[in-house]
Design a protein around this nucleic acid. Structure first.
Lengths: 194, 194
DNA sequence: AAAAAAAGAATGAACGTTCATTTTTACGTA
DNA sequence: TACGTAAAAATGAACGTTCATTCTTTTTTT
């Protein structure tokens, strides 16, 4: 067990270093040697845990995406009303993007560049299913507009990525008030108008 | 004139090649040699037009951003009502993102990665002033919610980037109906509720 | 014919990955 | 428990390639 434990620690250190360095420098400007150094490991050791650099970044993406969605849906129950469920998930996502900023920034970069293999991208999308199910329910109950899932995501969820990024760049500070406003904007854009 | 003309053609070819290659491969996976080849030019020639690779990509960003905002505000007049003005600008931006997809994808990549110098990023932001002025007017007239410009942008404009990207990836097709729905979602999220 | 522009080849540095070796771990035996 | 040993894990150095940039020469322009 001690053996296995140690390995997992190294693997985690490598993934953490990858996230931090790629956030600051981008994928191709992040050499394996620097990742190794930050993880306190020899460059050669990386290849005991990952096939190559592409595999390292693919796996990092999938792990972070899984973490993100796990957090987002952690306290959600099918028994909640659509409105309550959406608000909860939205707030959890906002929470994640602000608290786990490094992780969320990494995801944003992956989602907006050719950094990740298409296969890994698909894999990452699967984790969003609970949200799609909630929307389906909302549409059936006539609470959420009958829009495509992509449009709903674009207006209800994705704006948080933009806010996170400019917050990280220091021009904007998202406080409690802003968050409530942002939630209202999100909900107004997808709820059925009276 | 013929001399100067020829130079501008080469410069444009270099910028076009940069956009296309960076879109498909990312900044650091785009060698100067390939940019040169695509522009039908020797690698050494690039250095007659740009200081180095970073300068090439910075200048490309600023030029494309200027093109984007020029298109967005081309038919807008201060004399328009806030609602009409916003709708017009929104539609022009949507139009640009769908028609000039390559250019818009390039901007999205620049805005979500450490690819561009901070200085060039600032330079690019300046071009958005007419939109900020419109919002200011809308707030004063009590038509647009008194939210920060960043929040307004996140909900009214930025979702279009998300839609463009997934459209480019082929999972989603933005048609006339979708566009009208998207506009309504945008407007609902920022307009003052009755 | 001088100056400017462009070209291809050359250079040196940096990178991903592999290789040969050392260190650590796991475990059967005394 | 202590030891010896084979396997596993980890390492630093080395390899071959790629790339941004520069240098020297050629071509084009004026």
């Amino acid at each position: 067990m001690a053996k296995l434990q140690k390995s997992i620690d190294k693997r985690n250190a490598l993934i953490k270093a990858t996230i931090e360095l790629v956030n600051n420098n981008g994928f191709h400007a992040t050499p394996m040697s620097k990742i190794a150094k930050m993880a306190n490991v020899s460059p050669a050791t990386i290849y005991l845990y990952f096939e190559n650099k592409q595999d390292l970044v693919n796996k990092t993406y999938i792990e972070v995406k899984a973490e993100y969605t796990k957090y987002a849906f952690a306290t959600y129950k099918d028994s909640m009303s659509v409105e309550d469920g959406f608000k909860l998930i939205w707030q959890r996502i906002a929470d994640f993007k602000l608290k786990e900023c490094e992780n969320a920034m990494f995801l944003a970069q992956c989602d907006n560049t050719p950094m990740i293999d298409e296969e890994s991208r698909q894999e990452g999308i699967k984790h969003l299913q609970p949200l799609l199910d909630l929307w389906e329910r909302g549409k059936q109950e006539g609470i959420i507009k009958p829009l495509s899932d992509y449009l709903l995501y674009a207006y209800a969820i994705n704006p948080l990525s933009f806010l996170m990024i400019i917050q990280k760049r220091g021009v904007f500070q998202l406080d409690k008030t802003h968050l409530e406003e942002a939630y209202q904007a999100a909900w107004n854009s997808i709820k059925v108008s009276l």
